[in-house]
Amino acid sequence: MRTRLRSLIIGDIQFQFKYGFYFVYTVFTFFYICLLFAFPATIREKAAILMIYSDPAAMGLFFMGSIVLFEKSQRVLNSIAVSPVKVSEYILSKVVSLGLIGTVVGVLIAFAAGNRNIILVIIATFMGSVIFSLFGLMIASKIQTLNQFMVATIPFEILCLVPSIFYLFGYQKPFMLLHPGIIVIRMMEGKNIENIAFELLMLGIWILMIYMVTYRIVKKMFQSVGGVKL
């Protein structure tokens, strides 16, 4: 891996650690696993998938706001904007660092629920997390307060979560298979393995499109460190 990107990722992980993300998610993991066993065994796996999709995978959508706001308020973003860090490296680092912890938590929950498609769970959680984190970063780049962030994430949460919940609990239509969240959920369920290449391709396209929008917004944020709205 290129050294600067690696440094950034290590920096982000260190930051997330200092601000207690790792602690919080250790507690959450424990709590989720306990909660799982409150469900009847028949729907335990489904419940686990919903948990993973709506929390560790969606972590970026909840926490990117505070991460970026810290960087703005401590003016760390200024220091980064006048260093050789590329916009793409900045984005990748955020996405990968959150993706790692999200995936670890996801795998633990899935395993506890008896899901044995661990490789698919890893891929699906990570890719889902990338999508949520990109949305989070997009919003975080635009806002000035945590409240604004919370409000602005609501439509994204609805769009990402509601169709997936419908799908998971039985409302299934073919066109829904284009929804990235539903692809992620199907992958976690280990369904449709024969079409995995197509699903990966679909997720890849989604990620690429969302990344391109995020890139433009983050680039503007870097430039606005100079104080100019472009």
């Binding site: 920096g11 760390v76 260093s83 050789p84």
Partner: peptide, 29 residues
């Protein structure tokens, strides 16, 4: 090849001074 000392501190408050320099230093080739 440009070094900037901003008007205001631009550092990670929760990291130590040494960790800050280590992090920012690691961004350069």
């Amino acid at each position: 090849n440009i070094g900037l000392d901003f008007e205001f501190p631009s550092l990670y408050e929760k990291l130590t001074a040494r960790q800050n320099l280590k992090f920012f230093g690691s961004l350069y080739n």
